[in-house]
Amino acid sequence: MSNRVKWLVVAAISVVAIGATVVVGLFAWQQYRLRQDAPSAADTTASRDWDSGDRVVFRNTAPGQGYGLVASVPLSDPSAARAVTDTACDRVDAADDEFSCLRTERGIVPSYTATLYANDEKPVADWPLAGIPSRTRISPDASLIATTAFVSGHTYAAVGFSTETLLHTREGESLGNLETFTLIIDGAPAAPVDRNFWGVTFVDDTTFYATAQTGGITYLVRGDLDKRTLTAIAEGVECPSLSPDGTRIAFKRVTSGSGPAVHWTPAIMDLSTGQFELLPESRNVDDQVEWLDDGTILYGLPRENTPGDTDVWALAIDGKSKPRLFIEHAWSPSVVRQ
């Protein structure tokens, strides 16, 4: 076979391969649009009143129209029709007048952003993320926003994952990466190269808790924004969430397995005593929980046999109650009280 014939064969194969790729891509896009344009699997209403009254704000995961958009339901009636906005987020946290939105911008090369929106859905500030969105929290007075993204990996069960956790003001001013803070373990500064930080929960505008991991050990750290320190106060605490009364931390704790087979169970830690109690949830909870009130936590779980769909569950912290379905087709809940 001559070189000319060989090149013609290669060219023909390439054209066929490219054509097949285009066909597959068009088919996938068509199926995606059909799913997005189908009627929503959840009862929805217009978005104009989505930010009124005591409410739970969340990411809508009901298949069909409105999938992936920020939505809300009344706190007093979480089974009511959800008010759906026009803003798409992968992760959301809300305050009275604004909400923090982490988003994947899909394209040939995906990009990742964090945006603080006013409730009219107009951007207040935005900044880039280093990778896949993971966690976000707004401080009680709405002056600070924390974001966590995966620099490498896409789950906390992955081996060798890396995270970037940033603090910003409401105006978008960067207050730095937590890796630039001084980490204090057993009373002494530590600067391990394998350190990772994630899962911020604010006490006020200068103090917060977060997760730190190094040497295979996960710590609960107390952050001081003025001193730029992170002080380890307990081990085995991941994705902390401070209770409304400020006395307890809800978190996820490894109870079996490791790596991709790790199993997390929700737990409660008393900050005054350091004692913790595992809660009666047998399923794997890989989430930063939200407090519904001082006696109940909320968290998201994948819906069985329905990729991309999730539900929000409620669990009393009395150590006896069973989990109950709180909001169907929802993710990343945030409780807002006016």
Rank of each mutant, 00 (worst) to 15 (best):
D37S: 14
V124T: 06
K122R: 15
A118N: 07
R59D: 03
R135P: 08
R103T: 13
A71G: 08
Y67T: 10
R33V: 12
A83E: 12
A80F: 04
P128N: 07
V56E: 09
R35E: 15
P78G: 01
W127N: 03
T44A: 09
P74N: 07
A94D: 00
R135M: 13
G107I: 06
P123F: 05
D93V: 06
Q30V: 00
R33T: 15
Y32S: 14
N60I: 03
Q65H: 10
T113E: 13
S134W: 13
Q65S: 09
P133T: 07
A83L: 02
L34M: 13
A81I: 10
R137A: 15
S40L: 04
V109I: 11
Y67N: 12
A20Y: 03
Y67P: 02
G25D: 06
P133C: 10
V56A: 04
N119Q: 09
V24C: 10
A125Y: 00
Y112G: 04
T115P: 05
V16A: 14
I13D: 08
P128D: 13
L102Y: 09
Q31L: 10
L69R: 11
A83Q: 03
A38S: 05
V10K: 11
V9A: 11
S139L: 05
S134Q: 09
I13Q: 07
T115Q: 05
L8K: 11
V10N: 11
P63D: 01
V5C: 03
T136L: 01
G53Q: 01
L8Q: 14
A71K: 01
A42S: 15
L144R: 02
I132S: 13
A62D: 04
N60C: 08
P110I: 03
R59T: 14
D49T: 12
S143Q: 03
P133N: 08
V16Y: 11
D97C: 09
P140L: 06
P78C: 08
V56W: 04
S47H: 09
G53I: 02
R137H: 12
P63F: 07
K122P: 08
V84I: 08
P123A: 08
A20D: 00
Q65M: 09
A80Q: 07
W7F: 12
L144C: 03
Q36I: 05
A146C: 12
G66M: 04
W29D: 15
R48E: 14
L69K: 05
A81C: 00
D93S: 12
L144M: 06
N3Y: 12
T85W: 04
F27S: 15
P74D: 00
V124Y: 00
A83S: 14
Y32Q: 09
K122G: 06
G107Q: 10
S14G: 06
G64W: 04
I138Y: 04
A80K: 03
T21G: 15
A42E: 05
D37L: 10
Q36E: 13
T45Y: 02
D141V: 01
L8V: 14
A41N: 04
T115H: 08
C89Q: 02
D43I: 06
S100N: 09
I132L: 14
L102M: 05
P123I: 02
E121L: 10
R103I: 12
P74I: 05
T44F: 05
D97E: 13
R4L: 12
A81M: 03
E121M: 10
L116N: 00
E105K: 12
A62K: 01
D49P: 01
Y117E: 02
V15S: 13
S52D: 11
I13M: 11
C89K: 04
D51F: 09
L144E: 02
A80P: 01
A88E: 14
L116A: 00
D90R: 05
